[in-house]
């Protein structure tokens, strides 16, 4: 019930209600549990509804932003963050359009993960070098154009296969329009929506470190 109310406040962009619901939950359950029981299910439900065509991408984006901003405000009130765990690398591969990356960043941050934003327009060699140097355990990559998606094979290769290589998670329009594309390119983790970002983060990295 509370999750539904939170989701509805996010979708109607009622920042005050979002903040209040979050504040109540934080006071009652503490940071991690509030994120676990309120933020994550609401963001996952919004992502799933977009996947099923019931919400627009703009609503997913705005929900993530509002949620992230509300959490930031409360955390600032409550003392500085104490995050020490691994970070998830984020990038737009070859393309410039950053909306997908920003949605994923907001959702991950709102769900308690730390992110390292590598920006946009990166080629395989540059992105692999950055991710390997930072030893990120997971690299989430967004693409818009088909030709960029086709070059993800090169990124996979540049990241290597040793146990320390980051798990590569990809997403974006080409994968939604052609569900077999990820398999064709030999990619292990293809996300359909922001909800899958949380799913893969949990599957491979476990629950987030304290924030």
């Amino acid at each position: 019930m509370e999750v539904q109310a939170f989701q509805s406040a996010l979708l109607s962009m009622d920042r005050i209600r979002v903040g209040n619901l979050l504040k109540e939950s934080l006071a009652r359950e503490g940071r991690m549990q509030a994120i676990e029981s309120l933020v994550v299910p609401a963001m996952q439900a919004i992502g799933t509804e977009w996947e099923q065509g019931r919400l627009a991408l703009a609503q997913v984006y705005m929900s993530g932003r509002i949620c992230e901003q509300a959490l930031d405000a409360l955390i600032l009130e409550d003392g500085p963050p104490v995050a020490t765990g691994p970070r998830i690398g984020l990038a737009v591969f070859m393309d410039q359009h950053q909306l997908g990356k920003r949605i994923v960043a907001s959702v991950l941050k709102a769900s308690g993960y730390r992110v390292l934003d590598y920006g946009q327009g990166l080629d395989a060699e540059t992105l692999a070098r950055l991710a390997l140097a930072d030893r990120v355990p997971m690299l989430m990559v967004s693409v818009l154009m088909l030709h960029s998606a086709m070059h993800l094979k090169e990124l996979r290769q540049a990241l290597g296969t040793n146990p320390e290589a980051p798990v590569l998670v990809v997403g974006g329009a080409p994968f939604r329009l052609d569900p077999t594309l990820g398999r064709e390119l030999g990619l292990e983790a293809v996300g359909e929506s922001a909800a899958d970002a949380i799913k893969f983060a949990r599957q491979y990295l476990g629950v987030p470190c304290p924030i």
Binding site: D95, Q96, L146, H147, S148, M150
Partner: peptide
């Protein structure tokens, strides 16, 4: 416009 070898020219930074 950013030209690539195997796809449509894409728009660069805003």
């Amino acid at each position: 416009a950013i030209f690539v070898e195997d796809g449509p020219p894409n728009s660069g930074e805003p």
